[in-house]
Design a protein around this nucleic acid. Structure first.
Length: 205
DNA sequence: AGTGCGATTGACT
DNA sequence: GTCAATCGCACTA
């Protein structure tokens, strides 16, 4: 399956365009772009994999209410929640729902589109498929860290969500990756068959 | 103040 | 395919 061709130049997505409900947001984001302005130039990629974390979901960081780490989840929708997993990997989430509700969508993988040379440099590898396949890898490729926690991803900053009007890919659905709690919930979404999707092959059909 | 645990990755068989 | 490094954070006392 070849990647969808862009229909127009990428433009920033407005907050009002984002679905409020996290599962709908997770689906909406498949095929959209994460863009990053670096000192050396522009970099970004197409979102090919997301996971929703919803109310009453014990696997979600918002489950036990706001804490210093997860407060961005409870802020306004369309903002970044960045946290560190396993001591080393940064995770990028998009906050969802209204203020006070700890919903979010984890961006799990990108298909590199712009600034591939910069991503190669940031990742320390030339393997295109490994540049942003995985939540920790994509943040490393785009130099996203805790400085971006809480920023508006629909704002004028150096990290934003964009669309180029490309045709939405066929979306697959599965259980989420790497969880011990709530492992059965089918809240992962992905561009079917896209080689830049992370996780086992069995979860990319 | 101490403890246990991950929304992972990269190295290795 | 398997496996362990790694450390910030939330939770208990």
């Amino acid at each position: 399956m070849p990647p969808a061709l862009p229909a127009t130049a990428p433009r920033r997505i407005k907050t009002s365009e984002l679905p409020v409900e996290p599962v709908r947001l997770a689906r909406f984001l498949i095929g959209k772009l994460v863009m990053r302005r670096l000192p050396e130039g522009l970099a970004g990629g197409r979102i090919v994999e997301t996971e929703a974390y919803v109310a009453g979901d014990a696997a979600g960081h918002g489950f036990n209410g706001p804490t210093p780490r997860n407060k961005s989840l409870f802020g306004p929708p369309g903002h970044a929640y960045v946290y560190i997993a396993y001591g080393t990997s940064m995770m990028l989430n998009v906050s969802s729902s209204a203020v006070g509700i700890g919903h979010g969508v984890l961006i799990r993988a990108l298909e590199p589109v712009v600034g591939i040379g910069l991503m190669e440099q940031n990742r320390g590898t030339l393997k295109l498929r490994d540049l942003a396949r995985g939540p920790g890898r994509l943040t490393q490729a785009l130099d996203i860290d805790l400085r971006f926690d809480g920023i508006d991803l629909c704002g004028p900053g150096d990290l934003w969500l964009a669309t180029d009007g490309a045709t939405a890919p066929k979306i697959g659905r599965s259980v989420r990756i790497g969880l011990t709690k709530e492992a059965h919930r089918p809240l992962r979404f992905f561009a079917r068959g896209n080689p830049f999707v992370s996780g086992p092959k069995s979860l990319n059909v």
